[in-house]
Design a protein around this nucleic acid. Structure first.
Length: 313
DNA sequence: AATTACACCAACCGCCTCCTT
DNA sequence: GAAGGAGGCGGTTGGTGTAAT
């Protein structure tokens, strides 16, 4: 009946981890690296479930510069991401460097929910609490309207498809209003924020409360002129990588907006699942996947599970 | 000072997805 | 293509600390 348990429950410890257990786990992973969580406890001499080891490592033991209180910027970013992604804590965490899904989930449930309720916003729907749900369905009935534009003067004639997932609600939502008010503050560098912004005015007029507008484009080739700064493939990559840290920092300041150059990525990449089979994006070619160079529709880094790239010291 | 209520968060549980055979 | 295993994810629980009465 049912699944076999992931471990021998009768012979495993539960509850809080002791210092000794932590030390053993750290020592083992430092020596052997992550992976094979099922066999890890036995190999490390731990009476713990493999899942428990994984959770302990990811959430608390792995090297991580960021612990402690969330900043106001992070708050707002989480709210925005949650309005777009829902309870996809791992995806949200992937866009908050140094934060874990569990941490964000807990923080959401204890702080942000209350914060939104105090603002008069339903934390689930991100709409005003007194709005009737019958005015605009929140789930399932997704009306995807697509429009295809042949892009002006590009030789590649990029087809950009805009998909609208939300019905137009009757009232203005103040959360989005905040975003609109914030918008001009961060355009001083002349970067390609307009790629998003050019779409936003109409969207926000139609659907000011929940922006699920996604831009889809054909596979982006390195020679495409969509990247205004450079068209050379390999020489184009490294400067972007060099700017990664800068964008990570800008991310929290801007609340996540398009990077300079406005890289086109596929829908899968935009959701941070660029390695999935849904990915039709050629950013993956030559190992330069969008996880290292791409940005999603918020202009946020699409790298997921950043901790994997952390080196053991 | 004692008791109760509340807030926080680490950890567990079960389901889902992906990968391998 | 099917089955099983392993890892990952989201929801939930339970222990602990703190504030309020």
């Amino acid at each position: 009946m049912g699944r076999s348990p992931c471990c021998e429950k009768a012979h495993t410890n539960k509850g809080a981890w002791t210092k000794e257990e932590d030390d053993r786990l750290i020592a083992y992973i430092r020596t052997h690296g992550e992976g094979c969580w099922r066999s890890l406890p036995k190999a490390a001499g731990l009476l713990r479930c493999g899942k428990s080891c994984r959770l302990r490592w990811i959430n608390y033991l792995r090297p991580d510069p960021k612990r402690g209180n969330f900043t106001e910027d992070e708050d707002e970013l989480i709210i925005k991401l949650h309005s777009l992604l829902g309870n996809k804590w791992s995806l949200i965490a992937g866009r908050l460097p140094g934060r874990t899904d569990n941490e964000i989930k807990n923080y959401w449930n204890t702080h942000i929910r209350r914060k939104l309720l105090n603002r008069g916003i339903d934390p689930t729907t991100h709409r005003p609490v007194n709005d009737s749900p019958t005015n605009y369905p929140t789930t399932t009935t997704v009306t995807a309207t697509t429009t295809t534009n042949n892009n002006n003067n590009n030789n590649s004639s990029l087809d950009v498809t805009t998909i609208s997932f939300a019905n137009p609600p009757p009232t203005t939502h103040h959360l989005v209003k905040e975003e609109v008010e914030d918008e001009p503050k961060h355009n001083s560098d002349g970067s390609d924020h307009r790629k998003i912004n050019s779409v936003l005015p109409e969207i926000q007029e139609r659907c000011p409360d929940l922006n699920l507008e996604l831009r889809m484009s054909p596979p982006h080739h390195s020679s495409s002129s969509s990247s205004s700064s450079s068209s050379s493939s390999s020489s184009h990559i490294h400067p972007q990588l060099q700017q990664e840290n800068h964008y990570h920092h800008q991310l929290l300041k801007t609340g996540g907006r398009s990077p300079p150059g406005g890289t086109n990525i596929c829908f899968a990449c935009s959701l941070g699942i660029e390695n999935s089979k849904e990915c039709s994006c050629t950013n993956n070619i030559n190992g330069t996947s969008s996880s290292s160079t791409g940005y999603d529709f918020l202009g946020l880094k699409t790298r997921v599970l950043d901790y994997r790239s952390l080196e053991m010291k």
